[in-house]
């Protein structure tokens, strides 16, 4: 089988190239990790070298300074509230927009997805003004609710794109069985959308968990409401001359999302793929 062995060699070369490319690609992250284990002197003297010993003092110091467990709970709460609303409202909207194609729904679709194009910086002062009036600023749940508004445009767009591929016969048969539109959505359509929902959840968790400017405006006031990225940002600002602590704070800020990703990686890829295959 000459052709087969040549193919094997080709694959091997391809694999080696891919591994090298990935190694270079991820090197900056690796560098951040190793520098978080160094002392200040070590960082200043040589940033490339591996740490002389695995020194976790930086971590104790930063975890204590940042009040890490508290931040962690804040992030979970904000993200959970945000995701719930985004998934519920976007899937519902995308469903009806696809199924009931009328002038109203196409206008509604445009109205809902257009904000993807409005730069956030252009209305941030007035946003805080409005949020103060309806009392959504300065609280974790309030911030979570605000994410509904900011997340719905893209989520609706994604749901809609997949909704188009779900055959209409499915809901028609549900109607014939006497289900209402809402029941059909809950019991028939939403389960079909599960892979897409997984995609939306994953994408939005990444976004909300790591978001910066909105939490900066809304919950930076108090230690009790701060998010992880904000604390890391403030920490880097405060200790910006002490790279070893800054690196540690950054590592601590990304580790939760890293774990989240590693655990769910299969699900992420599967979700996206399954959604596409419906076409």
């Amino acid at each position: 089988m000459k052709r087969n062995s040549r193919l094997k060699i080709n694959y091997f070369i391809l694999e080696v190239i891919a591994i090298i490319a990935a190694a270079i690609f991820i090197y900056p992250v690796f560098l951040m990790f190793i520098n978080s284990f160094k002392t200040f002197r070590e960082v200043i003297i040589d940033v490339i070298a591996l740490p002389q010993q695995l020194n976790i003092d930086n971590y104790f110091y930063v975890i204590d300074k940042m009040n890490y467990p508290r931040l962690f709970v804040n992030n979970i709460l904000i993200t959970a509230v945000g995701i719930t609303g985004i998934v519920a409202f976007s899937s519902l909207a995308a469903y009806i927009i696809d199924r009931s194609r009328s002038r109203f729904t196409s206008l509604a679709f445009l109205f809902i997805i257009t904000p993807m194009l409005i730069p956030f910086q252009t209305f941030m002062i007035t946003l805080l003004k409005v949020m103060n009036i309806i009392n959504l600023s300065g609280s974790r749940v309030g911030l979570g609710i605000q994410y509904w508004g900011f997340g719905i445009p893209m989520a609706t767009f994604i749901y809609f794109n997949f909704m188009k591929t779900v055959p209409k016969e499915i809901d028609e048969s549900a109607f014939i069985d006497g289900a209402t539109t809402f029941q059909t959505f809950i019991y028939v359509i939403f389960p079909i959308l599960k892979p897409v929902t997984a995609t939306v959840i994953v994408l939005d968790v990444m976004w909300i968990w790591n978001d910066f400017l909105l939490p900066l405006l809304m919950v930076n006031d108090s230690q009790k409401t701060k998010t992880l990225v904000l604390a890391a940002y403030n920490f880097v600002g405060q200790y910006n001359t002490q790279w070893h602590y800054a690196m540690t704070a950054m590592v601590l800020a990304i580790v939760p999302s890293l774990i989240f990703f590693v655990l769910l990686q299969k699900y992420i890829v599967k979700g996206v793929v399954a959604g596409s295959l419906k076409g």
Binding site: A88, F89, L92, Y95, A108
Partner: peptide, 11 residues
Amino acid sequence: FTLPAIFMVSI
């Protein structure tokens, strides 16, 4: 069904 989305995006 579109109302919650429209409402949140609006405010």
